[in-house]
Simulated assay, not measured.
Amino acid sequence: MTTQTSLHITDLILQASPVVQAVMLILLIASLYSWYLIAKLSMGFRKAAAQDEHFQKMFWSGAEIDTLFNNAQLNSKRNGLEDIFYEGYAEFNKLKKRHALITQKIDGTERILRVGLSRDQSLLEHGLGHLASIGSVAPYIGLFGTVWGIMNAFIGLAAVEQVTLATVAPGIAEALIATAIGLFAAIPAVLAFNNFTSKGEAIYSDRALFAEEMVALLQRQSMGFSQEAE
């Protein structure tokens, strides 16, 4: 009478060696963390796009810049485009009070706008590096678990006189599960990383374009004031 070896996935995981089980646990934690990052980044990008669109509509609706600046000053939770505008216009007003030249005011405003763009972009994309790490490292961690499991399976076969498929299959199958879990963790992380990178570049381009238009507007206003003063 022959005995059949169970090849259910749960049994294979429970029967795996401690090292392979540790690899599976690490990959499971990495997968859960990547899905947490995906959800967090997705909400963050959606919120940032909506807030930027809302602020641009107000800015180009004909509202006074000073009014928008005062509203932004009162908003302690400002971020994104509103925060970039606030920092840039605050620097412009500071230089204006010091009676700086037009070129000095514009250069100073542009410098602050660039700093604001970089800072807000870093905050928006926080977590993308972790997604990239999971996407690139998880398959190798899974492969390590597979190699270790297959090695242990062949070492165990050395003590068996007659080797059959039934004796080889469980050890190899439980080892391959580690690679499968590694791919399960890596594929969504890589796809999400590429998607969020593309969205981040689009948001940065829109904000950089707004900053250029804002600088041009301030430059025209400054030139108009200087001509009136003459």
Results as ranks from 00 to 15, higher is better:
residue 148 W to R: 00
residue 126 H to S: 11
residue 223 M to S: 13
residue 131 L to M: 05
residue 185 A to I: 12
residue 175 A to H: 03
residue 121 Q to Y: 10
residue 161 E to K: 14
residue 85 F to A: 05
residue 179 T to K: 03
residue 216 A to S: 11
residue 95 L to W: 03
residue 94 K to S: 10
residue 136 S to P: 09
residue 117 L to C: 05
residue 198 S to T: 11
residue 190 V to R: 06
residue 161 E to M: 09
residue 190 V to I: 14
residue 111 R to V: 02
residue 121 Q to D: 08
residue 103 T to M: 06
residue 146 T to M: 00
residue 196 F to Y: 13
residue 112 I to V: 13
residue 218 L to G: 01
residue 139 P to G: 10
residue 201 E to R: 13
residue 108 G to W: 00
residue 105 K to S: 04
residue 105 K to P: 00
residue 99 H to A: 15
residue 185 A to G: 07
residue 181 I to V: 15
residue 91 E to L: 05
residue 101 L to T: 15
residue 138 A to T: 09
residue 159 A to S: 15
residue 171 G to P: 04
residue 199 K to R: 11
residue 143 L to M: 15
residue 219 Q to H: 14
residue 83 D to Q: 15
residue 95 L to I: 02
residue 124 L to F: 01
residue 188 P to Y: 02
residue 201 E to K: 13
residue 167 T to N: 13
residue 223 M to P: 06
residue 166 A to I: 05
residue 222 S to Q: 12
residue 212 E to R: 08
residue 199 K to Q: 10
residue 97 K to A: 13
residue 157 L to I: 08
residue 97 K to Y: 08
residue 149 G to L: 00
residue 187 I to E: 02
residue 119 R to I: 10
residue 184 F to C: 12
residue 192 A to H: 04
residue 208 A to Y: 12
residue 136 S to M: 12
residue 158 A to T: 09
residue 152 N to L: 12
residue 172 I to S: 00
residue 211 A to P: 02
residue 108 G to T: 00
residue 169 A to L: 09
residue 197 T to N: 14
residue 100 A to Y: 07
residue 139 P to N: 13
residue 104 Q to G: 05
residue 202 A to Q: 10
residue 195 N to L: 07
residue 86 Y to G: 05
residue 158 A to W: 08
residue 92 F to K: 02
residue 120 D to Y: 07
residue 105 K to I: 09
residue 111 R to N: 11
residue 124 L to R: 05
residue 97 K to H: 13
residue 87 E to F: 06
residue 171 G to N: 15
residue 120 D to G: 06
residue 116 G to P: 02
residue 218 L to R: 02
residue 194 N to C: 06
residue 93 N to W: 06
residue 181 I to E: 06
residue 111 R to A: 10
residue 209 L to G: 10
residue 143 L to Y: 11
residue 193 F to K: 08
residue 214 M to L: 14
residue 144 F to C: 00
residue 190 V to W: 05
residue 120 D to H: 10
residue 86 Y to R: 09
residue 146 T to P: 01
residue 139 P to I: 09
residue 170 P to V: 02
residue 153 A to G: 08
residue 197 T to M: 09
residue 164 T to Y: 04
residue 218 L to Q: 03
residue 132 A to V: 12
residue 142 G to Y: 06
residue 87 E to N: 06
residue 221 Q to G: 10
residue 109 T to P: 04
residue 147 V to C: 05
residue 221 Q to W: 11
residue 152 N to I: 05
residue 179 T to Y: 03
residue 190 V to D: 05
residue 194 N to I: 03
residue 144 F to S: 01
residue 145 G to I: 01
residue 162 Q to N: 12
residue 150 I to P: 00
residue 162 Q to P: 02
residue 204 Y to P: 01
residue 110 E to Y: 00
residue 118 S to Y: 12
residue 211 A to S: 14
residue 181 I to T: 14
residue 180 A to K: 08
residue 116 G to T: 04
residue 147 V to D: 04
residue 179 T to V: 08
residue 220 R to H: 14
residue 116 G to Y: 06
residue 209 L to Q: 11
